[in-house]
């Protein structure tokens, strides 16, 4: 099988080109071809959210999209969340609230939470819980994650 597809896309604002097999998912491409290993594969079937990224600003599971579909799109991953050496408020609040243990779910949750706060800077706890319902965490029991997101939202509103 050598019908590799040439794809031009943007990842975290940078123009990127890659060759991929048509069966490769965007998650495979990010991790194995672009060395962006922040997005994790928890399940590979859209159930856990560990592979969450944005495509043209829309939150998706990168395990449920082909690399070939990225042509002409703008991809956002966890690697683009911090600004240079400066952690994003969500990242700082996750550390402050101890909202992670093993960390496998964390990149996906941060990408998902950032996407929520861009659409809705002042979500209720219920809205945060529903928004993140597709992000499974087997360690924290979720509550610290929710507190961290709400606290970060409050700080970001104050700064704006």
């Amino acid at each position: 099988m050598s019908n590799k597809i040439h794809v031009s896309t943007k990842v975290n604002g940078d123009a990127v080109e890659f060759l991929c097999d048509p069966r490769e998912t965007l998650l495979d491409v990010l991790r194995d071809r672009l060395n962006l290993t922040g997005a994790k594969e928890g399940c590979g079937t859209g159930d856990c959210g560990a592979c969450s990224v944005t495509v043209d600003g829309r939150l998706i599971c990168s395990c449920l999209m082909l690399g070939a579909e990225a042509e002409g799109k703008e991809i956002g991953t966890i690697e683009g969340v911090a600004e240079g050496g400066e952690l994003h408020p969500l990242q700082r609040k996750f550390i402050e609230h101890a909202a992670l243990q093993c960390g496998v779910c964390t990149p996906g949750i941060l990408v998902a939470a950032k996407n929520l706060l861009e659409k809705n800077p002042d979500p209720t706890e219920e809205q945060v819980r529903y928004w993140l319902a597709g992000n499974l965490c087997r360690c924290t029991g979720y509550d610290k994650i929710i507190r961290a997101v709400l606290d970060a939202a409050e700080e970001m509103r104050g700064a704006a």
Binding site: G46, C61, Y130, A133, G134, N135
Partner: peptide
């Protein structure tokens, strides 16, 4: 149907 991520597609 599905999660926020699934709704995106």
């Amino acid at each position: 149907i599905g999660s926020t991520q699934v709704q995106g597609r």
